[in-house]
Design a protein around this nucleic acid. Structure first.
Length: 270
DNA sequence: GTCCATGTTCTTTA
DNA sequence: CTAAAGAACATGGA
């Protein structure tokens, strides 16, 4: 469910609920939802959330000092983080709760691919590539030259660029007119510029529409996104391309469904 | 019963 | 060595 635009929307809607407020209680209903195992989450009780931000697909909570430190939540594929009244009925698969004076933050995740990670004083940067919305075209161009793998695989790799997922990679490659199988090395500086702009335009538009809800995704207030209505290729196999009417194709690349328009996204060097 | 799913990480294969 | 492919994780919907 959550790629950069969805995570950004959760952060934006959750921020006013938690920043400046002290955690009054923590309940971990499954010990394996949080890592590292053995960390005492009760030590968070009494501390104030000083900042909430997104890094890649992570929701980072910064706490006031008295130990300092931070932790992040990851939504995996089906995770939700919502802020609600404590009297609200507990949803199935609620694994963690953070109580505040004026409400409760709940982590729900049926498939449990997400989780909570205590960072303490450590950085949250390990194995993460640059932020797509801040990345310069030259940075992308340079990175593309380092590998021959299909451009889609690279864009899904969080160490290559951090925050894109299956939907927005397909959408951004369509916007850029680049075939997903194109080897990174075959993309020149102009291609990189076009791709960089397409990634940013796609992500910003998706954020404006509060993300894509295919099934589970909701923001911190429980509202669905609207960008799924504007997808041009994702999950549209067989339907006519909105630009040229050719049927959208679906292939499997790196184990992931991949959608593209064979006419608008020609193979570069057949 | 089958296949598929917005993610990540580890192992196997080439 | 690199990188591609596959499997694994766990649940639910079509």
């Amino acid at each position: 469910m959550p790629e950069l635009p969805e995570v950004q929307t959760v952060v934006d809607t959750l921020r006013p609920c938690v920043v400046g407020h002290a955690v009054r209680g923590v309940k971990l209903r499954r010990s394996d939802f949080a890592t590292p195992i053995g960390f005492d989450w009760q030590s968070v009780v009494g501390r104030t959330v000083t900042n909430l931000r997104r890094r890649a697909k992570r929701i980072v909570f910064e706490l006031d000092t008295g130990g300092g430190g931070s932790f992040y939540g990851h939504l995996g594929m089906t995770g939700r983080m919502t802020f609600c009244d404590p009297s609200t009925e507990l949803a199935k698969h609620t694994h963690a709760l953070f109580t505040f004076d004026h409400g409760e933050l709940r982590c729900v995740d049926p498939r449990r691919f997400g989780g909570l990670v205590w960072l303490g004083e450590e950085s949250d940067e390990a194995r993460l590539g640059p932020e797509p919305l801040e990345m310069r075209s030259q940075t992308l161009a340079k990175r593309l030259l380092t590998t021959r793998r299909p451009v889609k695989s690279a864009l899904l790799d969080q160490a290559f660029i951090a925050g894109l997922g299956n939907i927005y990679v397909d959408e951004a490659l369509f916007a850029a007119g680049i075939h997903p199988l194109t080897p990174c090395r075959d993309l020149d500086r102009d291609d990189a510029g076009k791709l960089c702009r397409s990634i940013k335009r796609t992500l910003n538009k998706a954020i404006q529409h509060r993300g894509s809800t295919l099934r589970d995704y909701v923001d911190a207030a429980g509202n669905k996104g609207g960008f799924q209505k504007l997808h041009r290729v994702y999950d549209r196999a067989g339907q006519p391309c909105q630009r040229c009417r050719a049927p959208i194709e679906r292939i499997v690349l790196g184990g992931r469904s991949t959608h593209f328009c064979p006419a608008c996204q020609p193979v570069l060097h057949p």
